[in-house]
Design a protein around this nucleic acid. Structure first.
Length: 288
DNA sequence: AATAGCACCAACCGCCTTAAT
DNA sequence: TATTAAGGCGGTTGGTGCTAT
């Protein structure tokens, strides 16, 4: 169902949104809410499909979107959450207020994956999955770290919640904090093109969780974080901070390519933790 | 100054899930 | 229970701007 019925109409426009279209969509949703997305285009006077409107709203027009560079805290969070849930961008985004799954996905594909290599990947994928190349689904599965229980996972995501309440399988990613509240409560932030989101840095309640990572957590293989080239001019401090953080984790399971050595890339039985990881991934709520 | 290569990111595509009937 | 429409999500693509040569 790639194209919904509304998308099959010949008149629907594709491609980049014009400022006029944005304005129409924002004006309509601000006054009516979106309700049924399939009805939004017609009611808003847009020649777009509902799906396109939804995507535009969620990824760009939503007033609580944070834009600009990811902070080191956000990077840490993304790295850790990705090591837990893999390419579950929506889950990851749910823990990064104001960030969209699309944004995180793009960010990961463009930058973070330059830094991180996954463990127990096949030689072919290891050699072919050099910086920037996507990992296969198999890689994602076999590289999923081990979690023996939902509680363990939740301990990563939100240690305070685990301590405060009994296990609730339905709340695996249910944040008690209303997402995007910081910007959403401030009407001055709505549609203000001059607003710099970083001026209102919203520190996620999870932003400090990295220091509380469960010792059973198996992080991904890390490719010589100390040798990471600064990706952008002016980001050296943040990059160094991230690298220092990665080094400071002192997880015994933090592999680096330096640890492995190029000659050790022969196909070998995955460690028990990876087998567990597959089971953990399979037991994940909406794991494919 | 021209241009080839690269990186980023907005948007689309297609699959899966869920809710309604 | 089966069918269908719509929402949601992850993967992928293509356009644009930047950088190096």
């Amino acid at each position: 169902m790639g194209h919904h019925s509304c998308c099959n109409q010949q008149k629907v426009k594709r491609g980049l949104w014009s400022p006029e279209e944005d304005e129409k969509l924002v004006r309509y949703i601000s006054s009516h809410g979106y309700g049924c997305w399939s009805e939004v285009p017609e009611k808003a006077g847009l020649q777009r499909c509902g799906k396109s409107c939804r995507l535009r709203w969620i990824n760009y027009l939503r007033p609580d979107i944070r834009r600009g560079r990811f902070t080191p805290e956000e990077e840490k969070l993304i790295i850790n959450l990705h090591s837990v849930v893999g390419n579950r961008w929506a889950h990851i985004a749910s823990h990064l207020p104001g960030r969209t799954d699309n944004e995180i996905k793009n960010y990961w594909n463009s930058w973070i994956k330059k830094k991180i290599r996954k463990p127990s990947c096949s030689p072919s994928s290891s050699t072919s999955s050099s910086a920037g190349l996507p990992l296969s689904n198999l890689d994602m599965l076999t590289c999923t770290p081990c979690f023996n229980s939902v509680d363990q996972l939740e301990a990563i995501v939100n240690p305070s919640m685990v301590a405060a309440k009994p296990h609730d399988p339905n709340s695996l990613f249910g944040s008690p904090f209303p997402l995007f509240q910081a910007a959403g409560d401030d009407p001055h932030l709505l549609f203000n093109p001059n607003h710099n989101p970083d001026d209102h840095l919203f520190l996620s309640p999870f932003s400090s969780f990295a220091a509380n990572v469960d010792s059973n957590y198996l992080p991904p293989l890390v490719d010589g974080m100390g040798a990471i080239a600064p990706p952008l001019v002016g980001e050296e401090d943040e990059t160094n901070e991230l690298s220092v953080w990665m080094e400071d984790q002192q997880y015994p399971n933090f592999f680096t390519w330096e640890d492995v050595g190029e000659e050790d890339l022969s196909p070998a039985a995955p460690p028990a933790s990876d087998l567990d990881a597959a089971a953990a991934a399979a037991s994940f709520p909406s794991s494919p």
